[in-house]
Amino acid sequence: MPATPTPAQPPVEVFESGDAALRVVTSSPDREANWATVHALAGWLDAAGIDGVHGAVPTYDSLLVEFDPGVTSARQVRAFVLLGLRQLEFTGAPAREPREFLVPVVYGGEYGPDLERVAEQQQLSVEDIIALHTTKSYVIRCLGAPAGSPMMDGPDFPFPVPRLKDPRLSVPAGAVSVAGRQAVIAPAAAPGGWCVIGQTPLTVLDVAAEPLVPYVPGDTLRFQQIQPEEFAKYAGRKLEATQ
């Protein structure tokens, strides 16, 4: 989420997505501006509390706005979206200080069964892959499936990482994965086709807490290598912001 006003909103297109949703797509070459706009707009829709609008799902350059067609309509929601964009042009999105999260990860072995495959595919050593993965500070771009996963731009690998040909039926909670140019942590066990290079012992998702996951888009995240024997030491602890 942008910490400063964004006076120039990129142009958007609004597409029908059935009778209960609209897709709003930003169409500027500026990826950061696109991302900032869809998240600011989602925040605006939350705050506006429009009758019949359930909420919005912002990702990178698009926003899915869901609504109850018994109360409102695609046409009315489209008008609200355009109003929101106009208003954001004048006010900017509310500033919010990003928080940082530090995530301990055991790489490779049973914790990261695809680490060696990724190293081979990138024509790098396993150590290089870990170094590249732990060097970067990642901006959480959006919350994705499953269950509020923190979707991030991937590490600075030479090549995009291909997805698994046969997705796994279950990837454990805490799995740290890469695919394409993206990186993610699995908050809950779920099927997955991304390459799992490690696992964090921390609890990411807590169904007894609200919010369920501690981060929001715009927060930053860093990975830190730990050894397998340290896994148990961290197990059961919750992921929390460091600042």
Partner: peptide, 12 residues
């Protein structure tokens, strides 16, 4: 072309 992750509606 690769599609960036997007919100998908129920019924998609």
């Amino acid at each position: 072309a690769e599609v960036l992750s997007r919100g998908v509606p129920v019924g998609a």
